[in-house]
Design a protein around this nucleic acid. Sequence first.
DNA 1: ATTCTTACA
DNA 2: TGTAAGTA
Length: 134
Amino acid sequence: MLGIQEVARQLDVTMRTLRFYEDKGLIAPQRVGTTRIYSRREIARMRLILRGKRLGFSIREIKEFLDLYDVDPEHVAQARQLLMKIGERVSALRKQKRAIDQTLEELRLLERQALTLIDGAATARNDDENKHDD
DNA sequence: ATTCTTACA
DNA sequence: TGTAAGTA
């Protein structure tokens, strides 16, 4: 059983973050008076929470997953839901990627046009100087 | 000195 | 989430 400070250090998060996820109902550390005491289970849940966050899942989705983790010992329902969520996440990321690719193409086009404009102006200037040489 | 809650950014 | 304020 560890204090909030130690847990925060181990997970590399702030105490604020631990209280935040508790407030969202993702973890429920024991209490000694008002002071929070974290068990091995809370720490394990926090690791899952942090990973879910890294993968881009919402707090709500992570909570749903965690809730199922408790009821279904075999984790079958979890696996199914996870599979569905992964599919959604992959689709969302692919959609974002398409948008990014489109933006990149547009920027490259604009870049070429800008370069052409600059090059064209320089060429015109040189031609003008040549006329004076005549 | 530490932790907690609440509220605002 | 960070930070500040006022407690226990």
